[in-house]
Computed example of a mutant assay.
Amino acid sequence: MSFSSETKNELARVEPEKKCDQLAEIAGFLRVSGSLRLTGGGNFTIVIATDNPAIARHYKRLIREYFQIDAKLEVGGAEALKKGHTYMLTISPENHSESILRETGILLVREGNNYISDGIYEELIRKKCCKRAYMRGMFMGTGSISDPEKSYHLEFACESRTLANDLKKMINSFEDLSVKVVQRRNRWVVYMKNSQYISDVLALMGAHAQMLAFENVRVQKSVFNQTTRILNCDNANTDRTLDASEKQLRAIRSLKQSGQYDRMSEKLKELADLRISNPEASLTQLGEMTDPPLGKSGVNNRMKRILSLAEKVMSEK
């Protein structure tokens, strides 16, 4: 099962207790997963579809609890598409479908005429708890999240620009959250790639187990990346040390061949001998071997004098 499916299954087990949250979650799911069928007399039948049985059971139960009606649950095959089954909840005019559309902010009135809105009804999301519930409903209907082992990406695919912009505004109203909107074919996608934002959204929606799983992967990847950076840095430092050591050894050999080595001070001879005996040692390590011990800057100054003497010898040849 994908990380996205596991997240939706966990969200389907969240039971909102407050009536305002129940309504907001139903409205969010209905907004992206519902469709309308006209029946006789200008009435509407609501059809809500999902391919997840846990989500279908969840909303059948939630609709019954809030609206006191029993939505009809049907299972339809999708063999031609090879995508398993489609679970459909149907709410007929006899079950007050029009009232439900009005209360969820989908059927509105303008200049005395009914119209179907394509955005988020502000009255439903005035409180933060309602925003979280609405987001949860929309995610179960049209959201997806990538496996954090592969990438960080969470998105909501919306049918209209208005809905995408309203969702962006709602999510961005939470402190330290930010999403973007992009058009993808005939849809507008609200998405985020920041791992901290995704973790926060999972927690806000109530997917706490998935949030912990996400954080576990995030921490492991962070530790791995940090370890890799340290190893790369160590390797680079080792390479620089070896390159510098080879240059110093060439200088010392040149001084010995020219006879200049014997004319150097005892301190410079000591350092030159230590370098020959310890070609892989750093300047700090060489300093610890001198008698008395010498700091890195002191070793560096003496080594510069050795290199300078060698350059002078080479220039006189």
Rank of each mutant, 00 (worst) to 15 (best):
M88K: 15
S315W: 03
I230C: 04
G41C: 09
G137M: 00
N216V: 02
Q68L: 14
K180E: 03
G84M: 11
D291C: 09
N95L: 15
C20L: 09
E25D: 06
I171N: 03
L38V: 13
F44T: 10
N172L: 08
K72R: 11
T162V: 01
E103A: 05
S282G: 15
A56G: 07
R229H: 02
A281L: 11
H96M: 11
T238H: 13
G84N: 11
S151G: 09
S4Y: 01
E246F: 01
G119R: 06
K127T: 13
L101W: 05
E175N: 14
A272F: 03
K150F: 02
A244W: 04
N95Y: 14
E215K: 00
L274R: 05
Q248W: 01
A209L: 11
I63H: 01
L81V: 14
L274P: 03
D243T: 11
R102L: 07
E6M: 06
G259E: 08
I252H: 06
N301M: 12
K83A: 12
L242C: 10
S2Q: 06
I46M: 00
K127D: 15
N216M: 08
K168D: 03
S117R: 08
K83G: 13
M264K: 14
S195F: 03
E122H: 10
Y134P: 05
G206N: 00
G298F: 04
S222L: 13
S245P: 03
Y197L: 07
S199D: 09
L309W: 08
T228Y: 05
E15S: 11
H58G: 05
L36D: 04
C129I: 06
A80L: 13
R37S: 07
R102E: 04
L231V: 00
D243A: 15
S97N: 09
G298I: 06
E270R: 01
K247C: 03
I125H: 05
N43R: 15
N186L: 08
F214Q: 04
N165E: 03
K127F: 13
N186S: 11
R184D: 14
P148H: 07
Q285N: 13
K304H: 12
C20P: 07
E10V: 01
D70W: 12
L89A: 09
S282T: 15
D262S: 01
E103I: 06
G112L: 00
Y261A: 07
V14L: 08
R184Y: 13
M314D: 15
E288Q: 13
S97G: 04
Y59N: 02
R37W: 00
M264R: 12
Q196D: 15
M138S: 06
D273W: 06
A12I: 02
C129F: 01
A251M: 12
N278G: 04
Q260C: 03
Y197H: 15
F224A: 14
G119L: 00
D291T: 15
E270Y: 02
P93T: 06
